[in-house]
Amino acid sequence: MKRALRLALLRLWLPVVALLAWWFASAGSTSVYFPPLSKILDAVRTEWLGPYFLQHLLPSVGKFASGYLLAMLLGVAIGLLLGLSPLARAATDPLVQFLRSLPPPVLLPIGILIFGIGVSMNVFIIVFGSVWATLLNTADGIRGVDEQVRDMARSYRLTRWQRIRFVLLPAAGPQIFAGMRTSLQIAIILIVVSEMVGATSGIGYYVLKSQQSFQVVDTWAATIVLGVLGYLATLVFLQVERRVLAWQTGMRRSTNAE
């Protein structure tokens, strides 16, 4: 209990100090560009926990979540296929390397042409940009599964599905999650960028619009909301990872103890 408290203090002191410093430094500010933090937080409360919650915040979260989850599904499925089949890997490698080298924002104009402005275009950009890290890590992880583990699975005549479900995917798990973490950061960037140029709602859309119409307080408020959302997404991700890979943490601890 005491240790948990110390850990919480250790983690929280810097954000608290930073907020306090911001609060007091900006308290009497009359600058248009640096409004007082009190005003900004007021805007967060009245607008983002008010009408904008449904109008901008939920759509952003929805697009982000569906885009990211779709990318993960595709990334693991295709990665698994490429990891299992050297032939498929050889046949697709040049294309995969080319597509993943494209900086995703470059696809915004084409995405707008094809999908128009709106949800499907945003989701498309997120999926396209964030799928690669997971896909390639999955393929690598599957390919690298230990030879003896494969022998074991074969000699006990596990079915293909059992091999995938109980042996290959868990074995590649640590690497898959490392890829998913990179994908997450990319997806967070892309939801904002794609909303800035190709949406009529969403936080990214709102940040740019408020800035262009000189509602500086609102720009700050939306920026804070974005930061908090990104942080929460990472937190959720780390929780999931910790649960799924609990065996790995335990194993590492037990081998270190020996």
Binding site: D151, P170, G173
Partner: peptide, 20 residues
């Protein structure tokens, strides 16, 4: 691999699945 045959491998740490 035949049905009625089982193999015990040399390296148990690599043949038991650590996630199970």
């Amino acid at each position: 691999p035949p049905k009625k045959m089982a193999v015990i491998f040399q390296d148990y740490s690599r043949s038991l699945l650590p996630w199970m």
